[in-house]
Simulated assay, not measured.
Amino acid sequence: MKKHLVAGACAAAATLVLAACGSGQVGQSSGGQSAPDNKNLALIPGVQAEPFYISMQCGAEAEAKKLGYTLTTQAPQQFDAALQTEKVNALGSNPPAAMLIAPTDDTAMLAPIQQVANRGTKIVQVDTSLKDSSVAVSSISSDNTQGGQLAADTLAKLVGNKPGSVLVLDTKAGTSTTAARAAGFTEQLKKYPNLKSVGVQFTDNEPEQAASKVSAALASTPDLVGIFATNLNTGEGAATGLRNAGKIGQVNLVGFDASPSEVNGLRSGEYQALIAQDPAAIGQQGVDQAVNALEHKPVTAKLTAGLHSITRADMDANAQYFYKQSC
């Protein structure tokens, strides 16, 4: 998702920058007040074994160690509110000083997160967020609406003047990040009269469902020229659907994120572009804001991370944005 394709509003740097709006200060400086005795931080990502969250964990762990804190990670096996609630509840009677969490549902996760906050734990949202974010001292994520816009601009450049239809694959209704990406993409696509959206379809975050949706779209929409997949699983499923139909390279696939499998797919031509986030920086900044809150230092209520449009032509120059499988 690199430089020559990046929409003007996107940050080219990998560092985090303040959001243009919605940022503010929480807490007061303690004038050098010592840190609390509880040095334990918890990270509860959206799902385990996903390179985006592994990269976030790596950034968070490194920053926690640097600042003299210990961070443990507990991830649900699936991107599911009930499974994530189990991880939150498991913190039990010995809650961490602060919890970094990527809520898997913007409404259902409020109650369990609030219960942890009521026990004195500072809450920092990373990647995803609740509709009611008042429980959190800080929220750090990519500008997902902008990411969707960047994906639409990227797809339009790939397609050129060719007319045709475009499919959007989202994960689950109620997932704040992917919903914003889909909405940003759909709105931005209106700027290209040769491209027509055939709507957003949900995949329950399952690659098999994404593959099935693509197969059905190919059968019902002969002029399909592009697909925007809002996350890793939808992208992998979309690539499978195109492969099964013999349409690899004939239908432009723009994915979100830059996992090892997506990077390999970009190199082999299964994807035509990826929109990469900077999850390690999100994890790092999440720890920074949590520690600031614990040590009574100024906390920024909202931070955003940079996004990068990467194509096969410039992927080697942008390898720093590829996600990790281990720390």
Results as ranks from 00 to 15, higher is better:
159 V>P: 05
259 S>F: 01
236 E>C: 09
4 H>E: 14
284 Q>K: 14
76 P>M: 05
206 E>D: 14
12 A>V: 15
309 S>I: 05
278 D>E: 15
167 L>S: 02
79 F>P: 03
61 E>S: 13
317 A>H: 11
207 P>L: 06
316 D>M: 12
261 S>C: 12
316 D>K: 14
78 Q>F: 12
268 S>D: 15
298 P>E: 06
282 I>Y: 01
89 N>P: 05
51 P>N: 04
27 G>E: 06
56 M>F: 07
198 V>H: 02
197 S>A: 10
56 M>S: 05
226 G>T: 04
247 K>S: 08
278 D>H: 10
54 I>L: 11
129 S>M: 13
50 E>P: 04
311 T>K: 02
114 Q>N: 12
91 L>I: 05
76 P>Q: 14
269 G>I: 06
7 A>K: 11
37 D>P: 09
289 Q>S: 08
161 N>Q: 12
303 L>M: 10
72 T>R: 07
298 P>V: 03
59 G>Y: 00
148 G>E: 03
169 L>S: 01
43 L>A: 03
24 G>L: 07
234 T>H: 01
262 E>F: 02
74 Q>D: 15
145 T>E: 14
165 S>P: 04
303 L>D: 00
204 D>Q: 15
16 L>V: 15
43 L>G: 00
277 Q>E: 12
15 T>M: 10
134 S>G: 12
324 K>N: 12
226 G>R: 00
130 L>K: 01
54 I>R: 02
302 K>N: 07
57 Q>H: 09
287 V>N: 03
155 L>I: 02
140 I>V: 10
278 D>I: 13
127 D>H: 03
160 G>D: 12
89 N>G: 10
45 P>Y: 01
296 H>C: 14
72 T>H: 11
110 L>N: 11
135 V>Q: 03
184 G>I: 02
59 G>C: 07
24 G>Q: 09
84 Q>P: 05
52 F>S: 01
79 F>L: 15
208 E>P: 09
76 P>W: 01
124 V>T: 03
166 V>Y: 00
223 D>K: 08
113 I>N: 00
115 Q>N: 11
244 N>Y: 05
310 I>N: 00
184 G>K: 00
142 S>L: 11
249 G>I: 04
87 K>M: 14
274 L>N: 02
229 A>M: 02
200 V>H: 04
11 A>Y: 08
103 P>S: 06
246 G>Y: 04
112 P>Q: 03
104 T>W: 00
176 S>N: 07
300 T>H: 06
106 D>R: 13
92 G>R: 08
100 L>C: 05
27 G>C: 08
19 A>W: 02
251 V>G: 00
89 N>Y: 09
211 A>D: 04
230 T>L: 07
142 S>E: 09
144 N>T: 12
222 P>A: 07
38 N>Q: 10
166 V>P: 01
208 E>L: 14
271 Y>L: 07
86 E>Q: 12
142 S>W: 00
39 K>T: 08
319 A>I: 13
72 T>N: 10
299 V>P: 00
214 V>E: 02
295 E>R: 09
204 D>H: 08
107 T>H: 11
73 T>E: 10
223 D>N: 10
176 S>L: 11
163 P>L: 08
116 V>G: 02
164 G>D: 05
47 V>F: 01
320 Q>E: 15
113 I>D: 00
234 T>D: 08
221 T>Y: 06
